[in-house]
Amino acid sequence: MTDPRALRLEGVAKRFGDGAGAIQAVAPCDVAIARGTTTALVGPSGCGKSTLLRMIAGLEAPTDGGILFGGETPDTLRRRAGLAMAFQDAALLPWLRLRGNVALGRKLARRVPDAAADDALIRLVGLAGFERRRPAELSGGMRQRAAIARALAGDPDLLLLDEPFGAVDELTRERLNAELAPLWDARGTTTLLVTHSVIEAVRLSDRVLVFSPRPARVVADIAVPLARPRHSSAALADLCEAVRAALRG
């Protein structure tokens, strides 16, 4: 794991506040993630995995340690629009229609407008026919899928997904899991995915990092050496059980 192109977290820690009232959100954390892979971060609610994701996105500065992706700090990476993040609350702009919200991803990333590619992404996340709807007219799950389409529109090297399927219904989720994973595999995108769903983590990712309750600390690092598409199988079930065991501590 010494690939210089990898995502490397060295002693990354986050503390909120100082003195007696300080809260340690993330314990010092050393992780290296290979380029072009998909990694799921799972852990109990409030354990600090979202904070870790925000630090990787450069939205929050670590109190200690450093983060590099392909030799670049999150700040340089952000500045060249090398990363994209899909937020838990979708963060769609209510005055834009769905198409406008997806196009916004390309615009923010300073890419050339490409309506055809935007429409393709909208089809990919299963929202064809809803292009002219406003966010208020979409369900929670639809909004999250729109947010993923927007994140993909910028064609990022590093894709950060913060519980992107929380509000997506089970059937759609399975379909998305099946269709999205090959997509970012093909693009060579390095994907980090925070999720509560063990089955989703195992189905989507090449590797699952299990975190402890706060302060977040990696308690298990489980590789998922399964071929895609991943249908239900004994191996898959075993891996899920391994993750659950790690979560239970």
Binding site: M85, A91, L108, G154
Partner: peptide, 13 residues
Amino acid sequence: PQSWLDLARSYGR
């Protein structure tokens, strides 16, 4: 909301 600010910041804008 914070997430709209984060959205723009996450693209380094």
